[in-house]
Nucleic acid binder design. Sequence first.
DNA 1: CTAGTTGTCGATAACGTTATCGGTAAGCCA
DNA 2: TGGCTTACCGATAACGTTATCGACAACTAG
Lengths: 346, 346
Amino acid sequence: MKDIAKDLGVSVITVSKVLRNHPDVGDETRNRVLARVKELNYQLNLAARSLVTGRSYLVGLVVPDLLHPFFAEIAKALSEVLRKSGYYLIVTSSDEDPELEEQEINQLLARRLDTLIIASCRTTVDLFFRIQNQKIPYVLIDRWLPGLSSNFVGVDDEAVGVLATRHLIDIGCKRIAHIRGPETSPAIGRLQGYKRALLESGMKIVNDYIIAEPKGDVESKQRGAEAMSRLLALKARPDGVFCFNDPLAMAAINYATKEGLRIPADIAVVGCGNLHYDDSLRVGLSSIDQHSRQIGEEAARITLSILNSKVPPAPESIVLQPELIVRESSQRRPAMNARSRRRGPR
Amino acid sequence: MKDIAKDLGVSVITVSKVLRNHPDVGDETRNRVLARVKELNYQLNLAARSLVTGRSYLVGLVVPDLLHPFFAEIAKALSEVLRKSGYYLIVTSSDEDPELEEQEINQLLARRLDTLIIASCRTTVDLFFRIQNQKIPYVLIDRWLPGLSSNFVGVDDEAVGVLATRHLIDIGCKRIAHIRGPETSPAIGRLQGYKRALLESGMKIVNDYIIAEPKGDVESKQRGAEAMSRLLALKARPDGVFCFNDPLAMAAINYATKEGLRIPADIAVVGCGNLHYDDSLRVGLSSIDQHSRQIGEEAARITLSILNSKVPPAPESIVLQPELIVRESSQRRPAMNARSRRRGPR
DNA sequence: CTAGTTGTCGATAACGTTATCGGTAAGCCA
DNA sequence: TGGCTTACCGATAACGTTATCGACAACTAG
C-alpha cells in the first residue's frame, strides 16, 4: 500500500479508502489506484485490517465429524449464506473428541473470529462460559447443553424418537428396540421420544431393548453390527429397531441380513438423518429427515442478525420438526398369519 | 497482555516471551504470568502475531466439493498431520465453480496463509502465476494443470483407466464403454488409460461408447442415469462400463437395473474412488481405490518440508499407484454359452 | 459578498504482538 | 580480584492497516 501511494503521489490513507470503497475519494484518483493495484497484483492484508477494525469477517464452525454428510451439508449451507454477506466460514472437525474440540476452539478464538458455530461433543458447560467471557457470540447447532441459555438451531429430538417409534408401532411391531447414540442431547432426546411413544401406546419399556453405543473410536459399521448381534441374542427377539443414525442402521441391517433375517419381514428398521443413498441400497432405508440444510441456513440467519445488530440480541432457539421418510426397511408388516409365521431365520 | 504485565510489575515483552516458551524468562516469573493468564482467561491475538512474524501458521485447502468423501478424507488426513506440527488447516469448497474458487483463494491469500493446497477446478494457469507472485507456496492435489511445474500429489490417472479397463477385458467383456468426468486432468488421464488398454488388447475405440458428462450443476445421480440410458439405446449394447467415479457408477447401475438388466451378467461396472459403502449396496461396486488418505498425508508432508526449509525446495511430484478392488459388479462373466445367452432384459 | 455546504484528501495515532539488541546481576574460573 | 559467561529482563521500533479528525478548495444559497 505504501508503494502504491508513493508511486501515485497520494497518501496511504487514500489507497486504503479506495480499497474499502470509501466515498471520500474522487473518480480519477480511485481509478488510478485501482489500476496500480491490478498491475502490482497487490493483496490486502486482512490480518492487519482486523487488528485495527476489531472485526475479522470470519465465522468459525466446529463439527464433530466432517465426513458425516449431515454436518457437511450444514457447512455448505452456512458457507453459502454467509459468503453473500461478506463473511467467510472456516470449518474444523473435532472428531468427537472433547479435548481436540477445545484445542480447535482455542485456535479459532485466537484468530479473533466474529462468531462461533458449534456442534459440541462436550457434556460440560465451562468452555462455553469461557467463550462468553471473550465476548464472542456463538450459536449451538444440533446439540445443546443443559444449563446454557444460548442461541440454538436443531431438530426436535424427542419428536424424532416419537415419530420413528410410533411408525414402527403403526406397522405392527410388538417388540421395538432402540440402538442409541452417545451421551449428547440428540441421543438423550431421541431415547426419551422412543420411551414416550411406547408408553403412550401402552407398551412396556424393556431395558434389554435399549442398546448403548460402545465408547471409543470404533467405526459405526462395527458398532451397528455389535448392537444388532446383542438384540438377536435375546430370547424375545425384537421385531423393530429404531437406530440413532443411518450408518448405524445400515450396519445393523447388514448384520441381520447375514444372519438370515429378512428386512422388514423379520425386523423393521428406521434410521435417522435421511442420507441420500438413492436406490442403491439392498434395502431402502426408512429414516427421519433432520433438515440439515435448513439448520445451516437458520444458523447463518441468526449469525448475521447478531453481527448486524449493535447490541447483542436475545438468544434465539430454532427447533425444527423432523419428517419421516418411509422406505422398504419399514414397510407395513403383514398380520401375524400362517404365511408370515413360516418365515424364520435361516 | 499489557494488563497482565502491569498487574505483575513486569514488561509486556516478558509476558510475550512466556507465551512463546522463550527460554529468556525465570521459572518464578513464568509461573506468575501463566497463573494470571489463566485467571484473566486471556486469549492471544494470532492476527497481531502473524503481522509481525510474517507467519500465520495457517494452511489453506481448497477442494471442489466437501460433500465428496474423497476430499473430506483428504482434508481429515491433512488436518491431523499438520496439527501435530502446530499448523492449522482451513478448508473451503469451490463447488466446482472456477469463479468461486478464485474468490476463495483470494480470501485465503488475503489472510496470509503459509501454504495453499488446491484441488483446482480451473483449466487455466493464470491464477497460479498470481499465487506464485505472492510468493506463497502451493501444492496441487488430485488435479494438475499442463504447463505448471509445481508440487503435486495424486494418483496415476492413466493407470486408473488401464486398470479398470483391462479388468473388464479380463473378465470377458467385449464392448466396453466409459462414462467420463469433467475436463480436468483426472478425467483426461483415465480416458487415455481406457483407450490405451483397449488398443493394447487389440480392441477398437468406439466413440459412441465414450459418454461425456453433461455440463452444469446436475446431480451425479441424474448424470449417471442419463449416461447409461444413452448406452442402452445403442444397437451394440456395451457389456462393460468403466465410470469416472463411484456415485456415477451407482447411478448407472440403478438405471440399468430398473431397465431390467442384470449386473454384472448383462453389464459389468467398475467405478472409481472406492467409497466405503460396505455391504449395503444392492450390487457390491467394483472400484479403483485412489488412496485418498495417503494423498492427504503426502500433501501434508510436502507442505511441512516447504515450511521447514529456508529456501524453497524443488517441486515434488508424488504419483500414487491405484488399486483395483473387485466386488460383485464385475464378477467374471460366464463364457458365452447357451445358459448365459438365455438371459436378456425383461 | 458572506456563510454555509459539499467533495476530496491527508496527518496522527492506534490496534496487539514480536525481533533485535542492549543492559544488569550473579556466578565462575584463574 | 578481574574478566568472562550465563541467566534474566526490558526499550525501541516495526508489522500493515484504519478511525478520527482536521484542512482545503470549490460550490451554493441568500
